[in-house]
Design a protein around this nucleic acid. Structure first.
Length: 584
RNA sequence: GGCCCCGUGGUGUAGUCGGUUAACACACCCGCCUGUCACGUGGGAGAUCGCGGGUUCGAGUCCCGUCGGGGCCGCCA
């Protein structure tokens, strides 16, 4: 190729050398008798200067933003007083001898040049749908290219680390069988077999387990997954997992290698040194202290039992709840909250199922406001409330009270502007194996039906299903679930027992997972693994508000791609081939 | 399915109590300008105020509906 250097790579080492650059006109400054160009490629900017005597001058006069040009010239130092410290190439400039227009360009619908000069980027504030429609322009921005690079780098590091640890990368099919897992499947109609469908995988779960049966021993894949559910800032219908599985391992083995992988990725990609091991927090403790199974531990404001504060009090609303087997939990807000602020927090509590949010302030004169008349200041002090602080209480079923306060805790941190910095990884472990589904009135799996319980909890399966712990774990970073996995059931007897507890008849299990259950009968080794939500991981690493920022071509909240117009109608002939009819 | 927020030149916004010519910045086009780097400077073009209906003498503004976008709940093992 003719190009000798990336624009962003030209520096004072090249002074006196002739270069040929190819790139985009980031900006043009026309002084009349002298023209400056900022030439841009993915590595950065370099200033090109065009003298009126140069044969390139006429061409430079007709250049506009985003034109694609080839520049041949000589690198020289800028006059000392004209060095631009904002630019990596700010000490030098390229004197153009020849400029060729490789392509003209329309004016972009939003600016893409500012970020490259280190200026405030107006494109950060344009309607996101417009950015998605012209994503190829949006991706020209420095910040977006940096995210693409980070994504590449992290995936590269994952490949390197896991390969060195003896993992094999194995690809699994996109066109597979619909199995009754958690989410709604994307279906692909079969042309060859009328009325039958493939499904796109929600995860490679069963395939990776069968790879363990095959003796692969250590598997990974950076796998695309598909779930047909409503979208969110952290949810796309197709998204990427780092999927891993290992044979003959304990939970601790899985945690340990993942911790080292995370540490390696953060060190190499961000220059951040993480301390190992990550804290391991049992699910019940996470719930009691933070009201969440994915606690943000970058700040305190922990939830506390508050029954003692209300013991013997005349506040009947709470006494009744406790008599009915509920609990009282509270939070201390280290400030005197206004009524408006409390109303906002109560709204949060109610959205998550609480009936209300009781509150009281402690002043130097004693308890005041809210439910103060029911409470003794002495007890509030004993509970930990100091003057100038506000106590917030919820009484309800344990789960509801804790989860509502967990959300209030997050809203409170936001409200008070509590600083949340750092990289707080932790493992939430010992999830319950089962969860009561009050709609269907039966026990259902919390993780998936192949998750292994703790052996010592097995006797409880019949007596007290809720207290059986699973060998299931989540990796949490700053209040976001970035990974989850488990040790799997590898023996048929236990698997059958699980189906029985879940109320799935043997015949139904065979129908739905028969191929997989059969695999377990052929000498399946003990195994377990994890899957990372790689998009979420990258969004957190790059400080993005939404995973759309780290996905090159994402869908909008309606599941549409404004760039391609997908989803779109198809020709009647295509439907006919697939034996499909649209029903209005 | 539900709750909340937002739709005004290419982009981002202003537009008061409903009042006649819809304002500002950036971008764009043309002229001038030899050391700029948010270049400067003079001029210019550019708006079905998302769409439909209603109230009114008069609607960007008020009301109803609808469409689009964003955040959240449900849903997402």
């Amino acid at each position: 190729m003719k190009r000798t250097h990336y624009c962003g790579a030209v520096n004072e080492d090249h002074v006196g050398k002739a270069v040929i650059l190819q790139g985009w006109v980031n900006r043009r400054r026309d002084l009349g008798g002298l023209i400056f160009l900022d030439l841009r490629d993915r590595e950065g900017l370099v200033q090109v200067v065009v003298d009126p005597e140069s044969p390139a001058f006429a061409t430079a006069e007709r250049l506009r933003g985003e034109y694609v040009v080839e520049v041949e010239g000589d690198v020289r130092l800028r006059p000392a007083e004209q060095v631009n410290p904002e630019l990596a190439s700010g000490k030098i400039e390229v004197v153009a001898r020849r400029i060729e227009v490789l392509n003209e360009a329309l004016t972009p619908p939003f600016p893409v040049d500012a970020s490259w000069r280190g200026e405030d980027d107006p494109a950060e504030r344009v309607n996101e749908d417009l950015r998605l429609k012209y994503r190829y322009l949006d991706l020209r921005r420095q910040k977006m290219l940096a995210r693409l690079k980070l994504r590449h780098q992290v995936e590269h590091l994952i490949w390197r680390f896991l390969s060195d640890e003896g993992f094999l990368q194995v690809e699994t099919p996109f066109l597979t069988r619909s199995t009754p897992e958690g989410a709604r499947d994307f279906l692909v109609p079969s042309r060859l077999e009328p009325g039958k469908f493939y499904a796109l995988p929600q995860s490679p779960q069963l395939f990776k387990q069968m790879l363990m049966v095959a003796g692969v021993d250590r598997y990974f894949q950076i796998a695309r997954c598909f779930r047909d559910e409503d979208l969110r800032a952290d949810r796309q219908p197709d998204f990427t997992q780092l999927d891993m599985e290992m044979s003959f391992v304990s939970q601790e083995d899985v945690w340990e290698i993942n911790e080292r992988l995370v540490q390696y990725v953060f060190r190499e990609a961000l220059g951040v040194e993480l301390a190992l091991p990550f804290p391991r927090l049992p699910y019940q403790e996470a719930l009691e202290r933070y009201g969440s199974d994915k606690p943000d531990t970058r700040f305190g404001l922990e939830i506390r039992p508050a029954e003692d504060v209300f013991a013997g009090s005349d506040f009947r609303a709470f006494a009744g709840v406790v008599e009915d087997g509920g609990v009282v939990r509270g939070l201390v807000a280290p400030a005197e909250l206004s009524r408006k602020q409390i109303a906002g927090l109560e709204e949060v509590a109610k959205r998550y199922g609480a009936k209300g949010l009781a509150w009281v302030k402690l002043t130097s004169d004693g308890a005041s406001g809210g439910i103060a008349k029911f409470l003794e200041a002495e007890r509030l002090r004993a509970w930990g409330l100091a003057p100038g602080q506000t106590a917030l209480f919820v009484a309800d079923d344990r789960q509801v009270a804790l989860e509502a306060l967990g959300q209030v805790r997050l809203a409170l941190a936001e409200l008070l502007g509590i600083e949340r910095t750092g990289w707080n990884f932790l493992w939430v472990v010992d999830f319950p194996l089962l969860e009561w589904d009050s709609d269907l009135e039966l026990w259902t799996y919390m993780h998936h039906p192949f998750t292994s319980p703790y052996e010592e909890d097995l006797p409880l399966l019949d007596r007290d299903p809720a207290s059986v712990r699973a060998k299931a774990y989540d990796l949490v970073l700053n209040g976001t679930e970035v990974g989850g996995g488990s040790i799997r059931i590898h023996r048929m007897e236990l698997q059958e027992k699980m189906f029985a507890v879940l109320g799935i008849p043997k015949q139904e299990a065979e129908e739905k997972f028969g191929f997989f259950l059969e695999a377990l009968r052929y000498g399946a080794p003990p195994h377990g693994g994890i899957a990372w939500g790689l998009d979420r991981f990258l969004a957190l690493m790059s400080g993005a508000e939404s995973i759309r920022e780290v996905i090159p071509f994402p869908k909008n909240q309606s599941g549409r791609d404004p760039l391609t117009g997908a989803p779109a109608p198809v020709a009647p002939e295509q439907l006919a081939e697939l034996h499909l009819k649209i029903v209005e």
